[in-house]
Write a protein that binds this DNA or RNA. Structure first.
Lengths: 352, 352
DNA sequence: TTGTATGCGTTATCAC
DNA sequence: GTGATAACGCATACAA
């Protein structure tokens, strides 16, 4: 036993104000200060006033690491996305933040750069923070990541895809169904030789799903037509790459009458390249995108695309997490939320 | 005193593996496990091997909240930006992440929605996490926020602006100088009646700096020419708003021969609206943007703009933080880093 | 309504 | 090279 109240300088490194100091200042016990903060209505009015005054004058900021340790709740959500600078995921993060911040949850953001291996590593590091929830992009993970998630006993929301067997819950849409709907639209317009262009070797699993839908759609709707796919490699999703893909399509596959891009970013680059090169879209060749980005709807011609509710994915994921957390994470609450997708019939394709 | 090693169920809520359990499994003391993780070279080879094996087989994930509490280091950086979905700040976050993640620092992201009041509130909440560093956007903060920052005794990097008197360090560029350079370029091209269009009532302090530079530039370079500014209100920065601003400019200020937008997003919307409306840019009217976004350089015509190194701001901020943290945050290390800006003379303006 | 005792999982200190 | 012990700052259970 030792005398308390004084500062033994042995370990003390921060000079930040502690709850105990506020208590001393207010002439009450630490417990009362804690209560005054977290359940103000349980404390008498005078005491509350005195404590609040002490908090103000001492400049007390509660140490959430200590709170976390003691209460085993971190009020933290770990979010792993392929890249922050990819605007679609930024929208999702914004959606999460909008829903979670008002409830006192803060977001840890990490980027995987489309690598499942890196996802596992970041996950391991993030789980050390004992988050109250985890949000991932995609439904594919390394066995190691799966094991970590299962062991963590924390609500997990996978996103941007759908599966009947999520780790826990999932909020997204079917990339396969969305791309299928798009190629059906192209077929209905009377196009005869669609090709797919995009980036399929950078680790983006969802792009691969869309490619599979294109391939299956070709065989189903365009029997006899060769299935042609242009791959930008792993150069990154940029308008520059879209421009290059479009040039390549014109040069190597002149028979194609519509180029379906795996992202609006590529498609926008293509439409602008077409304009610069004097190629009429949709007159000479049709173009479709994927994503429903702002820029596509302002282009001349506007883009035919598949609109994906990026922000809503974040909002729904946030709601699912809150529900799971509040409910004490009982298994029954697991959810599969399909946010759907919307075909946008723009001017970059036309009835043939 | 009590017997250790067994689990008293009274408080225990997590069933996650603890360091002590790993120690028991390996037949060593907890301290040795801790060392094996953090200073592997201090532990004997056999012990190290045994501990690592125990970590693997138990699935141990260190609790960083406890580590934080004991070591008084959180390996956490608090980042407050106006909005995640604004791509420029997402780039900055990406830059921060790139530099900091390899050093084991994780990012807490919060959004202020361009409100200084909200910045203060989020800051208060974030400081409770005891971050090892703080990154803010802008050099203007509420007195309350200033007080919090000073009391926190943590490296702080302000960004996206410059000042001679930062709270601590600052990484950015002069919005005033950048806009001044742009209007000088417009003047050199022979334009006679520039107007400014953008959003100046949404709380974006940096946009106000640019507006001030425009106003001063007008008086200096275009004496006698009325200073006209179109404000989009607080509707948000979107291509839609850019389109509307352009229409308004054509309708209300037909004498203007160049519209200077406060963001490339507005300018891109304007250029595309001009195309749709059959207005020749730069033939009938010139357009400039601000930011140097990807889309602007692919438009037809390409955008005359001021390129801002968003990502580099994040990278430099990360480096400054690392340096400050490693050096024990001694005041001498404070830095003022000017990342500069680059004029991009595009096709949307022409010699008159 | 308020106070006391104790544990949360880790690291720092110091002894061996 | 390894271990025992005492913090770190707060929240929970229980007592008063």
């Amino acid at each position: 036993m030792h005398a308390d109240g004084d500062r033994r300088s042995s370990r003390r490194s921060t000079r930040s104000v502690t709850l105990a100091e506020v208590a001393a200042h207010a002439g009450v016990s630490p417990q009362t200060v804690s209560r005054a903060i977290r359940q103000p209505d349980v404390v008498s009015a005078e005491t509350l006033e005195r404590v609040q005054e002490s908090i103000r004058s001492t400049g007390y900021v509660p140490n959430l690491a200590a709170s976390n340790l003691a209460s085993n709740r971190s009020r933290t959500i770990a979010v792993l996305i392929p890249a922050v600078s990819a605007s679609v995921f930024a929208e999702t993060v914004q959606g999460l933040e909008t829903v979670l911040a008002p409830h006192g949850y803060h977001l840890f953001i990490g980027t995987t750069e489309y690598s499942l291996q890196q996802e596992e590593e970041m996950l391991r590091a993030f789980l050390g923070r004992r988050p109250d929830g985890v949000v991932l992009v995609g439904t594919e993970h390394t066995p190691g990541a799966q094991a970590l998630l299962n062991a963590a006993r924390v609500p997990v929301v996978e996103s941007w895809e759908l599966t009947q067997h999520p780790v826990d819950s999932v909020v997204g849409f079917s990339n396969y169904a969305a791309m299928s709907a798009l190629i059906e639209h192209v077929h209905a317009l009377g196009y005869r030789f669609p090709i797919l262009a995009g980036q399929f070797s950078g680790g983006d699993v969802r792009a691969l799903r869309r490619r599979a839908a294109f391939e299956d759609g070709m065989r189903r709707l365009f029997p006899g037509v060769p299935v042609r796919i242009l791959d930008a490699g792993s150069a990154g999703v940029s308008m520059d790459a879209g421009r290059d893909l479009f040039r390549q399509a014109r040069a190597d596959l002149p028979q194609a009458d519509v180029v379906m891009f795996s992202s609006d970013v590529f498609a926008a680059g293509a439409v602008l390249e077409a304009m610069r090169a004097g190629v009429a879209v949709p007159g000479e060749i049709g173009v479709t995108g994927f994503g429903g980005f702002d820029v596509g709807q302002h282009l001349v011609p506007t883009l035919t695309t598949m609109l994906v509710p990026s922000r809503r994915i974040g909002e729904e994921a946030g709601r699912v997490l809150l529900e799971r957390i509040e409910s004490g994470n009982r298994p029954a609450a697991a959810a599969i939320v399909d946010v759907g997708h919307t075909l946008v019939a723009g001017e970059s394709t036309a009835q043939q």
